[in-house]
Design a protein around this nucleic acid. Structure first.
Length: 286
DNA sequence: ATGAATACCTGAGAGC
DNA sequence: TGCTCTCAGGTATTCA
């Protein structure tokens, strides 16, 4: 569900409200939320007790709390999956639905991990404060200062797969999900089945420019919320759904040419595109 | 190397 | 009302 802009909104909220705090206690309400933590719930809680959060980092859709004190150099590695939320609450605030893990942070502050579908989760990464080895296979995201569009161009043009499939491959470039893939492809007037090897390098540079633009615009709007499943750490929605041009707009006129937006089934999910602006290629790669 | 299928989950909404 | 079906922003693994 949440893609890079939504995760970055959460990361910023945590950097403001959690960094500098000490974890006084951890309650795992549903062990499935930490299924990727090798040690299980007791180990998870015990190792975090007394640890201090020094900073909150992100790569793609993953983020992590860097720890000091007990667990110095370790990190709490987090992914929101399709429906995960990080909520800052007072201890006596009403319960949030689907709360799976609660971290008490002192001063009457709680961090609650809530996740309806449980595709997300938390785990401790040994020595992962700088960059968890568990996500070594995740590529740089386009907002990372280290991201080099020339390197990316070289890599994607070697991929023998469709353009959208490549954009969604988190090992090639991270942070892009179904919404922002469709929005960026529409901005670049590229069909999802274009063959990356047949694109000119400037087209790929332009596409990445569009990815960065749409993500930055979404970030300014606080992310995209279609429903209550994506909210920031205060439980507030984002407003970028108003800024979407094609995603979820089946049958609505393309903002450029008024041709009705079409929804295709692709990779077992929906792809929205303008059939006039984004012509099906002569030699498609699916 | 690539990708299809599957698994992990809950819940909202549509249609009957 | 209650059943079945489809859909949803993601990732990892297995098998061909």
């Amino acid at each position: 569900m949440p893609e890079l802009p939504e995760v970055e909104v959460v990361r910023r909220g945590l950097a403001t409200h959690v960094a500098g705090r000490t974890i006084a206690g951890v309650t795992v309400l549903d062990a499935r939320a930490i299924r990727d933590h090798a040690g299980g719930a007791r180990d998870f809680s015990a190792r975090l007790r007394g640890a201090r959060v020094t900073a909150v980092y992100r790569r793609g859709k993953y983020f992590w709390l860097a720890l000091d004190g007990p667990g110095h150099g370790d990190a709490v590695l987090c992914h929101l999956g399709m429906s995960g939320q990080m909520l800052i609450r007072r201890c006596n605030d009403p319960e949030d639905r689907h709360t799976r893990v609660i971290m008490d942070l002192g001063d009457d502050v709680q961090l609650r991990f809530c996740d309806q579908r449980l595709f997300g989760g938390l785990r401790i990464s040994d020595g992962g404060a700088q960059l968890p080895t568990e996500i070594a296979h995740i590529g740089l995201d386009p907002l990372d200062a280290e991201f080099d569009v020339r390197v990316f161009t070289g890599r994607i043009r070697k991929r023998r797969t469709g353009l959208k499939r490549a954009l969604l491959d988190q090992s090639l470039i991270s942070g892009i999900g179904n919404i922002y893939a469709d929005e960026a492809l529409w901005r670049s007037r590229l069909h999802y089945a274009r063959d990356p090897a047949l694109l000119r390098p400037p087209q790929i540079v332009g596409l990445i420019d569009d990815v960065v633009d749409v993500m930055n615009e979404a970030l300014e709007a606080g992310g995209t919320s279609f429903d209550a499943l994506y909210v920031d750490i205060d439980g507030e929605r984002g407003y970028f759904d108003r800024g979407l041009h094609v995603y979820g707009h089946e049958g609505v006129g393309c903002p450029r040419c008024q041709t009705p937006i079409r929804r295709d089934r692709f990779m077992n999910r929906s792809s929205y595109l303008c059939p006039r602006c984004q012509r099906t290629p002569r030699r498609p790669r699916w």
